[in-house]
Amino acid sequence: MCGVCGCGTESHEHHEHGHTHNHSGSKKIIEVEKDILYENNLLAERNRGYFNAKNILCLNLVSSPGSGKTTLLERTLTDLKDKYPFVVIEGDQQTTNDADRIHATGTKVTQINTGKGCHLDAHMILHALQGLKPAENSILFIENVGNLVCPAMFDLGEGERVVVMSVTEGDDKPLKYPDMFHTSHLCIINKTDLLPYVKFDLDKAIENAKKVNPNLEIITLSCTSGEGMTKWYDWLKEKSYAYNEAVMS
């Protein structure tokens, strides 16, 4: 039996309870049991609290590079800017190109350059918010770095995670990057205007996405032709807290 805590084992390898053993002349083992992402999760909860307090709908847009996140935002902001107050945070490794595209629509935008970093984290968002100061009842879009792996583990405090894929990417994408599809609420399948030219089984893609996450909502659309965009706008309307408030009052 362990003389210090009386836990009934000589081996300190497998204690389940969290406390410290301090044996003079031997090693000191600390049972930490702490989530490695706890710092990020803590800050994400802080962001979430801020969004709730200000009635802000925050959407975290994730995808492979080039699936059409910025194009989707450009079109949405142009079409709906008179209906909702929007703000955008752009995450890219380099350049302000995407932020410039958003700026051109007349929307308030901040660019975060992650350099070598392949994802945004809650800490970066916290600082971006200090500069942006989004108005109450606004919709905040965060365009994450184009990458389907790394951003999956990093909660930003968003209300909804939206994964964008496009028909040029292969219908097995959800199976290849299951963590991202598992943690998302909505999947947008973009570039449907290209369906006649590519080998992409839309039903199969949806089936694969539902296998990974049966609760995932799916919207198919084309940012170029505009087909299906109203489904996305309806979804936004439904989710937007501002809208909910307007309905209630």
Partner: peptide, 22 residues
């Protein structure tokens, strides 16, 4: 055959113990 699952284990990512030298 359902895909509606509650994942109990497999998503852990934590520091369990630290052993310090005196």
């Amino acid at each position: 055959g359902s895909h509606f699952l509650d994942i109990i284990n497999g998503r852990e990512f934590r520091v369990k113990t630290l052993t310090f030298a005196d």
